[in-house]
Simulated scan of single mutants.
Amino acid sequence: MENPFRPSFGVNPPLLVGRDAELLDFVDALESGPGAPGRATLYTGLRGVGKTVMLNEAESLARERGWVVVSETGVPGIVDRLVQSRLPEVAAQLEVAVGGAETRRRLTSVSLPFHLGGVTWQPPAAAQQLDLRAQINALTDHLADHSTGLLITVDELHRADRAGMRELVATLQHCFREQRPIAFAGAGLPAAITDLLNDDVLTFLRRADRHHLGAVDPADVSDALRTPLHAAGYEITDAALDMATRGTGGYPFLIQLVGYWTCRTLTNGQPTTLIDTTAAAAGVQAARRRLGSLVHEPALQDLSDVDRTFLTAMALDQGPSRTATIADRMGVDTNYAAQYRRRLIAADLITPAGHGRIDYTLPQLREYLREHAASSVDHEDLQPAAPEHPSPSTGM
């Protein structure tokens, strides 16, 4: 029996739940015309909360309404790729001139039999390439005549080179001022997005709609598990569904992991399609084992040594930690520890949990740290030789 779940980053789940309001805001922006604030939208959140999935959905919603979509990733060279490949490809499909020459291919010969593909095309004549703004202007002029628009999406903004983003954002700002039919949606990790917005040249993005993607409500989690299971021919008991739901902690990527490993455990061990609490417990356990290498390890790699020390010190507690206690374990004063507390909150790795208390945001992070770090660390090990001056971490 086919497993309905796809626990891969950036792959749309069989049922997207808990994001209706954010998607409705984007649709309203597309349909409201130039000037709608949602025509520039940023999605932030931890790894695995569905940022790329939201971009996928935004692109689908735009295409359904006749918009042209150009999708990019925020790695160095983004403007060169847009100017040299992405935008010219769209222009060729639409037969829009973006380089001073015709973009339509010409038929030069036909050889029989025609149905076997005996057709020769001559590519459009080479021309001096227009810059980013000129190409976007040409495309949006054409699309405006057809009552549609251009959506540009950029994933992994935390990896973007600053110079490329400055040029792209400056161009988008001109397009918005000229009320062109254009929209932008980007996604990235919280602290890096904040750092990007603090750039004096990128102030335009501060006016973008920002959606911080967090945990999904338990009722939505249950729907995200039960509906695909039933559609694939599985049955799940109420007790098993409750166990699987609680096992995800509302974390979107873990929903897919739990669903996938519950199905796989069942098909490997029992000749049945009924998921009971035994199968659900095995699925949750298998999913959590894999969460560490897929989510926790990459998240910790982005941090400074002191950031990781702070998080490891928290793992010694059974629940929410006091900042004063963490400072004591690190051998620093509370003001110094508070600066790292703010950094980790901005990175969405910890969250306030009552007066003077903090807790992890990623499910199972405490257990992961205990297994990989805290089990061999005592309070003396947590004391740095000399406090460093906090500076923004890269890549969070």
Rank of each mutant, 00 (worst) to 15 (best):
F26S: 04
L257P: 03
D161G: 13
E22G: 03
Y260P: 02
Y340R: 08
T194Q: 15
R341P: 05
G45W: 02
R105L: 06
T171F: 01
H212Y: 05
E167V: 06
G35P: 06
L382M: 14
D145C: 11
G18V: 00
D209F: 06
V11R: 10
L225R: 03
D238S: 09
G269V: 08
T194W: 02
L172M: 09
Y360F: 15
R226T: 02
S60L: 15
R341E: 12
Q84P: 04
P384F: 06
V306I: 14
V83R: 08
V70W: 06
S85K: 15
P384M: 09
G269P: 07
E156A: 13
G214L: 04
W121F: 13
M1T: 14
Q135T: 12
L30Y: 00
L274T: 12
V284F: 02
S321F: 04
A160N: 07
G100H: 06
E235P: 11
D80W: 05
T323L: 14
A239T: 15
T262N: 06
A187F: 02
W261T: 03
M330W: 01
G66Q: 10
L362I: 07
T325M: 09
A163M: 12
M54T: 01
G331P: 07
G395N: 11
T325S: 11
L139K: 06
D381C: 12
P352V: 03
I236N: 00
R86T: 10
R343W: 00
L132E: 02
N198H: 15
G395V: 00
E388Q: 13
I275H: 01
T265G: 11
L294V: 14
V98F: 02
R133H: 13
E371A: 15
